[in-house]
Design a protein around this nucleic acid. Structure first.
Lengths: 232, 232
DNA sequence: AATAAGAGAACGAACGTTCGCTTTTTTAAT
DNA sequence: ATTAAAAAAGCGAACGTTCGTTCTCTTATT
């Protein structure tokens, strides 16, 4: 009597999710057929359906994975600041990371389709909604730490500010999908620029004193922001 | 010998586009079947296909119509400022209009799906791209007029600023689709808030002097911005 | 009479999923 | 160690459904 091998199951699921992500990024959820995922995963439909019971389940699993990674990264940053790191460093690092993983045509397209999907698919919407709220609350926590360090005005509603900044990042991501002239560097520069406009005058002074540029045109990409340069 | 009646053709196309828009807003492009559009337009497939040769053609036509309307509205606003209207009034009016026509769950969903569609459908992408660039250039013109009125810093790249503001509005629209707690009023308030952060100190003084609030928490919705209140 | 306009059944392709069968692997008895 | 049983794993053709589109026939209009 043969028993299931959990490790093999895990490997197979990994293989399928990787294949699915590859396809979805290039063609989107609906334009990707199961046959294409099977081909990429080097697996027959019969085999694939042993590990996921539907296409929808694959979409949801892949998205949950993405969400989890984003939240995990933000959590790390927040912990760092709790443990004494500089708030502006953390923001800078976060933005760098977001730019690296999300600021591309493919990610923009996937992001757009995820939002469409959330509108039509209740299971997907729930997963996304939970992740969104968790991210927002964590981000608000980080901004709150920014307040403690005197970088953000006391009277800002950090939860709302978090939501707005997230929406802005999304807007940039989507614009990137849509307009190939809209570059990652432009988005990073402007997110830095407008974020700086929400800094306290103390935080602005700190940046100005260190880098000798008026804060209103500070450029995360081309000036040295506390914490160093963008790689590449 | 019977002749084609151009008026009837126009009416029929109108009927189809209205039906399509209704369906697309609720269910999206791909989830809406031709049968549903036919039902809503009270027309058989045979009849419908006399006026549009494919579903794609309907999608493109509907989107072009939307784009044209948005551009036309912006053009009017820009002309007004050219003819001596106050720049901040125009921005306020524009935002009011955008909020009324785009800040809803359905519009957000449609916007997301349009971006997805543009990624996969070259014809759609071209139409959207042309419209986007036209909108951006017009908006930059308007911002340039804002410079002339001393409301925006001389050294701002208005074309880039236009792109960023458009991306931000898109981000809000999409967030609204996704998160039912994210209200139109919140989006309007914050767009106003952050727009104000790009105003010159003269423009800020103008707002402060008239409304006695520090510009950094100015609220387009709850304070009287030059040009009046939001309806409803 | 001629043809535009419309109706609706039917077609055909695409696609997610299933099903019957084969192969591989594990287990346990010899 | 060998082997046979049992079930897991895998394969791929086929199924059933959905849906965009077409085709034929009828009706309306000039």
């Amino acid at each position: 009597m043969r028993t299931v091998n959990p490790q093999r199951v895990e490997n197979r699921r990994r293989q399928i999710l990787d294949a699915a992500r590859f396809c979805f990024e290039q063609k989107g959820f609906h334009a990707t057929s199961m046959a294409e995922i099977c081909a990429r995963a080097e697996m027959s439909p019969g085999a694939l359906y042993r590990y996921f019971s539907s296409k929808e389940e694959i979409i949801v699993a892949m998205s949950e994975e993405t969400n989890f990674q984003a939240i995990d990264s933000l959590r790390t940053k927040t912990e760092d600041v709790k443990n004494g790191s500089n708030f502006l460093d953390a923001i800078h690092g976060l933005l760098t990371e977001i730019a690296a993983t999300n600021f591309s045509k493919d990610q923009g397209a996937l992001c757009a389709e995820s939002i469409s999907e959330a509108m039509r698919n209740i299971q997907f919407a729930n997963a996304a909604s939970i992740a969104y709220i968790e991210y927002q609350e964590l981000f608000a926590q980080l901004l709150e730490l920014g307040k403690n360090q005197g970088a953000i005005d006391e009277d800002q509603d950090t939860l709302e500010l978090a939501a707005i900044l997230m929406a802005i990042v999304d807007g940039m991501v989507l614009r990137m999908a849509f307009d190939s002239d809209f570059k990652s560097e432009t988005a990073v520069k402007w997110i830095g620029n407008l974020f700086c406009r929400y800094l306290t005058s103390e935080a602005k002074d700190y940046v100005s004193n260190n880098f000798g540029k008026p804060i209103c045109i500070v450029d995360f990409k081309n000036t040295r922001f506390p914490g160093g340069q963008f790689d590449e």
